[in-house]
Nucleic acid binder design. Sequence first.
RNA 1: GCCCCCGUAGUUCAACGGAUAGAAUAGCUCCCUUCUAAGGAGUAGAUCGAGGUUCGAUUCCUCGCAGGGGUACCA
Length: 526
Amino acid sequence: MREKVVKALKKAISEDIAIEVSVPDQGEFGHYSTNVAFKLARVRRTSPIMVAEEIVLKVKTNKLFSRVAVANPGFVNVWISEKELAKELEIIIKEKNKYGTKKQTKTTKKKMQIEFVSANPTGPLTLANGRGGFLGDAIANVLLSQGHGVEREYYVNDTGNQVQTLGKSIVANCGFIPFEENYYKGEYVKTWAELHTPFVEKNKNKFEIVGERAAGDFLKIIKEALEEKAGIHFNRYTSEKKDIHETGYVKKVLDMFSKLGKTYEADGAVWLKTTEHGDDKDRVLITSEKAPTYFLADAGHYFETKKRGFTGKVLILGPDHYGYVARIQAAAEIIGLKESKVIITQAVRLVDKGGEVKMSKRKGQFVTFGELMEEVGVDAARFFFLMISPDSHMDFDIGLAKERSVKNPVFYVQYALVRAGSILGKTKKQIAFNFSLLSTKEDLTLVRKLIEFPDILEGVSGDLGIHHLTQYAIECSKAFHNFYEKERVDGVDKKTAGARRALVEASYYVLGNTLRILGCGTPQKM
RNA sequence: GCCCCCGUAGUUCAACGGAUAGAAUAGCUCCCUUCUAAGGAGUAGAUCGAGGUUCGAUUCCUCGCAGGGGUACCA
């Protein structure tokens, strides 16, 4: 609908200017509102009111609108005609679960890789991993709904220092070497070591082998938590060792960098000129001891992604990777991966009874993601994490989590869906409905919310702000609950019932689609 | 020191530079003969401080103050 409005407004303006259209909170400001008169007034050097009045005059006759008005100090507010609203409602009912989705043409279709979680298999998943997990999963859903190609990727760092350290930690736990400060200390390490003592003894000098074996087992635990408990399914678990190192991508990307003249040697090391691409210092690719850095392997990974035909990539990282963004974006630019986005999710602070609970993988104190699922349930946890902008530092009160789970907003949304479904089950569909019978404030607010859905999805697919969709889910549910309280479908005259039932049916689809894209359940009963 | 994120109701979070700053919780007052009260109605409650940019600032800029995270030829 937004697109239609923009198109209609464009006809009234001779200048080539971007038209922004918003949906005001207050009904009195119209279904849609634009501030374009303010921008034009500056160009034309007149007052916004005059420009607005001129636009209104030109747009007034458009059949899309039932009313067009100027509001001080220069907004143009438009109301969509009843006929158009009815048409849109029919589209919802016709498209059902497809409403809001889009198809792309060959030129607009993207092929995106979403890399998320990618936690090192040195222990169970933390809450921060879970935050990124739900976010990546939902972003993938949104892009898919808009007709783009998507791969959900978990990149496994199954080689290098961390695996070594994990191996050492386990060997030390079995008492074959002394324990050092930087080793992993969690229960999980201890337990694994105890279960595999004979194996560890046999390989007590081969830390890498011990580490790889343990990492493999931890990855299984991680997969189970993600796939079974959280319902997050990856298309690919990419192995750093097998898919990047052993396939030669590390060397390939290095060759590419040097061919492009982006590398140089200094102090015995090989550097990449990331400063030419927005980083604040150049970065080492090969150390003076001739070892490839983690960054080089990551560049190899980006190169592999590009070679596999992706047009873009979204990388979701935890807050400990802040310093990494500039260099990885520099590498992406050099490699030529066109659309590269990095989203940093802020820390999740665990709070209990007002006090902060410190989480640390090394020290082994944390509430795991799997435990959280068991405590509050997947839907509640998922919705809670997705409600909040990734930029926000969030407090998760573990004591309140369980208690609040009953009152979590996800139930508010699901309850609206259940109520709608219940009405549909108890009333009969009528062939045609008369839209003009939907005339109360509750009716019209709900209609407005429903037809906004495609606009919201499109917006989120652009800025990846999933929390806008969650926010929308709540608003839409509120509109439905309000309608439900005020109006009945059963027990009113046939024509009114038909019209209201159509509205309920449309609500049912929109609420269901919203929940599905967020990745939450769509229960029939509660 | 430098870089990034954040500071909004008692609390947890929203608000493409827009109009009367929204929810949810917690508090108080009401509403179940009728499609699920996990709901609805009412009430009370907030932009860290000081400047600046402009028709208009929670949003952008500068300087403070407070919190979190980075800052390796580690991963």
